[in-house]
């Protein structure tokens, strides 16, 4: 059914999706909060940059990351100079690529959730003695729960299906940077259709179940919060 390489590809994929989603939630929450509340006139520039991965071919993102992170790129070069291993063709490089690639899927739901809450509940909390940090954790976070759920699942599911960026930046090193989507590609190349069927089917069902749970839970929340 599954080969040893397939299993390690599965583990790498889950690890990659989990780590990327966590990083995106950590970095994306303050950024989404800022986007929802800032009145800076050039805010749309940032919003456009965040939405870029939605329209760009993943290979383009992967190509530029490869150039930047490779031994001859500005960041990769600096890391070589400091005696560190360049990030291209490593798991860390994959994480960086995934974070860029899945960014809109996490930030946009969070930004929408924060905008929907609006200023009023936060103002009420302020008049009741809550400091800005307190207001964020006691009011904004719980009220934005449906947004966080959507962001987490979309970020996770989208990273699962990543192909182009990973191929460009991670290479295809079994049990190191080979993820499921690339394992499927390899199996098809090698005419191993049974293997490709198993992995594809598993990914399809898993992603479908994830999305069903998001939409079902969000429906429950939206009924509750109406």
């Amino acid at each position: 059914m599954f080969t040893a390489d397939d299993f390690s590809a599965l583990l790498i994929t889950l690890k990659l999706a989990t780590i990327s989603t966590l990083i995106l939630l950590l970095l994306g929450t303050p950024l989404a909060w800022w986007l929802a509340h800032s009145r800076w006139r050039f805010k749309f520039l940032i919003e456009a940059v965040i939405a870029l991965p939605l329209v760009l071919p993943p290979t383009v993102i992967g190509f530029y990351l490869l150039i930047t992170l490779g031994p001859n790129g500005p960041i990769g070069g600096m890391m070589s100079y400091l005696g560190l291993q360049p990030l291209a063709f490593t798991f860390s490089g994959l994480v960086i690529g995934s974070v860029f690639y899945s960014m809109p899927f996490v930030i946009q739901p969070l930004q929408n959730a924060f905008s929907t809450i609006g200023q009023r509940p936060l103002e009420v909390a302020a008049t009741l003695g809550a400091s800005p940090m307190d207001r964020f954790f006691s009011i904004a976070l719980p009220l934005a729960r449906p947004g966080f759920l959507t962001a987490t699942v979309l970020g996770f599911a989208h990273t699962l299906g990543e192909f182009g960026v990973v191929l460009m930046i991670g290479g295809n090193i079994p049990s190191n940077t080979q993820v499921l989507s690339i394992a499927i590609y390899d199996h098809v190349e090698a005419m191993e259709y049974t293997q490709a069927h198993w992995i594809s089917g598993a990914l399809l069902i898993f992603s479908f179940l994830l999305l069903i749970s998001v939409y079902a839970l969000n429906r429950r929340f939206s009924v509750q919060y109406k």
Binding site: R120, P121, E123, V124, A125, T127, P142, L143
Partner: peptide, 13 residues
Amino acid sequence: IGYVFQEPSLFSH
């Protein structure tokens, strides 16, 4: 202060 807005603005959660 105590502030009451035009809309009740209770915390829905």
